[in-house]
């Protein structure tokens, strides 16, 4: 290499191990800084679930459970799942916006793994799920929600819900890579999210539903996570729902993760 021979290179780029992990974490930090710098981006995981809780509890609580307090106990563990799952949509929308800006060209021109910018965004957005869970618990406690199990189970519920949202967010990343514009990402994501989150026993017991809907509720991955969350927060059977939740989380990451990275590579 005759070009470099005369230049003073202070040995900058010695190979270091775990490149993909380090690069992804550096990019996750970037996402985090961006989120914290514009907190209005967190409205969908703070104010929106609070509105949902208020509407459902006071509108339907009496009719479904006989009392608003009983209904809140049933609803909150499920709303937590809905909120975090919806929260993942922003990752896809933001990536779609980002990728059209010059800064992604810079990332692509750097010697880093092609998946690092995507992993970074998904990891950075974990903060959104944490914020969602914390604000729901805080508001729920003000309204009278109480954990009926123990602290450890409650923590496990939070972790499981966050893990599931993280895994499913890879599907939104894929949509973000394929769609032409951010609005389209949102449209497609909403179409998928309604049957996933409302086709559950979140706001009413499945027993009251017609057969076809009950069959969907039974196989819907989100139902399993809601069941697990209720079991861990209120007591009752947890092993089955938790295993199903973990199974679906793994499926989503393994299927949508590689597809999203492939779509990112192909996008120019």
């Amino acid at each position: 290499m005759t070009i470099t021979a005369e230049r003073v290179l202070p040995a900058p780029v010695a190979p270091r191990p775990f490149g993909l992990v380090r690069h992804s974490l550096a990019l996750a930090r970037r996402s985090l800084i961006k989120t914290l710098r514009s907190p209005e981006q967190l409205l969908d995981v703070t104010l929106q679930p609070v509105v949902f809780v208020v509407v459902f509890v006071y509108l339907l609580g009496g009719a479904v459970s006989g009392s608003t307090h009983d209904y809140l106990q049933l609803l909150l563990p499920a709303i937590m799942v809905q909120t975090t799952v919806f929260g993942g949509m922003a990752t896809g929308v933001n990536l779609n916006t980002d990728i059209r800006k010059g800064v992604f060209d810079r990332f692509r021109s750097l010697p880093i793994g092609r998946s690092a910018p995507l992993i970074g965004s998904v990891l950075g957005d974990l903060i959104r799920y944490v914020v969602a869970v914390v604000s729901l618990f805080a508001f729920g406690y003000v309204l009278g929600f109480r954990v009926e199990t123990d602290l450890l189970s409650a923590l496990a519920a939070c972790l499981l819900v966050i893990l599931f949202a993280f895994s499913l967010s890879w599907a939104f990343v894929l949509v973000g890579m394929l769609a032409r514009e951010p609005g389209a990402v949102q449209g497609i994501a909403f179409l998928a999210l309604f049957p996933l989150t409302f086709g559950t026993s979140m706001i009413a017991p499945a027993a009251t539903m017609p057969d076809w809907l009950r069959s969907w509720v039974a196989v819907n991955p989100v139902s399993h996570v809601m069941d697990a969350s209720r079991g861990l927060l209120l007591g009752g059977p947890v092993a089955g729902p938790v295993l199903w939740s973990l199974f679906w989380s793994a499926v989503f990451v393994l299927v949508f993760g590689p597809l999203a990275v492939r779509a990112y590579r192909r996008r120019t």
């Binding site: 780029v13 550096a26 930090r29 970037r30 710098r37 010059g102 800064v103 060209d105 690092a116």
Partner: peptide
């Protein structure tokens, strides 16, 4: 200009440095 608008000047350059294995 392909810099990240939400990041400060320092943050932009440090990020690139980290991605270049510094």
């Amino acid at each position: 200009a392909s810099v990240d608008e939400d990041l400060t000047g320092t943050q932009n350059l440090v990020l690139i440095g980290q991605l270049l294995n510094l």
